[in-house]
Amino acid sequence: MDFKLKIWRQRDAADAGRFENYVAKGISPDASVLEMLDVINRELVAAGKDPIAFDHDCREGICGSCGLVINGGVHGPFEHNTTCELRMRRFHDGDTIVLEPFRSRAFPIIKDLVVNRTALDRIMQAGGYVTVKTGQAPEANAIPVPKKIADEAMDAAQCIGCGACVATCPNGSAMLFVAAKVSQLALLPQGKAERKERVIAMIRQMDKEGFGACSNTYACEAKCPKGISVEHIARLNREYLRAGFGSK
């Protein structure tokens, strides 16, 4: 397959950045978007030019490293996939494809298509954990967790931390990301002791990092590679309210 590409190039954070045009020829329909970029980069290097920088690692949709805005859509025009999972067979031969970095106030651009997503780590550091030191754990089966609860917690815990929810949100909110962790730990008995402090600390950090507010557009759920449900945002809101009223 052949494609015309418009790709965002930006030397560093200070550079203004611009689109540049490339052509991709003879791409296998089974190749992923990133494998197409590999081909372009080999050609650029062979021609003595600076290759296009983009983040990636596992290339199977689990590490959360990759993330491009493709034809205006976060991780591409479809739902529930990561950029590395998106195969070229989903496009038409001869299409023009526009590739940009995730854009959000909280994700400054480092170079080309690479952004800094450390704000998400700092939210986790604020409270996305259960305080249990190594060696303090009780026997695992001592605390039963009904299957239904464990499954629901797992639905939330699947978050790969890619930031698609932020990039796709008109307000640049990280609510779905925060909600996934708050919800997972609020559901499980292990997380109950700290649920109040956790939700307050994580929300506070989220605000501090410059993420926007949630106005229930639900764009995030559609774009989440794991399809994490906005119901977790509802649970987060309940957690936040009860934390505020000082009840347990």
């Binding site: 954990y129 009780p138 292990q190």
Partner: peptide, 10 residues
């Protein structure tokens, strides 16, 4: 035990 206590949803 340790992982379950951390909230790993086994």
């Amino acid at each position: 035990d340790q992982c379950a206590a951390q909230g790993v949803p086994f």
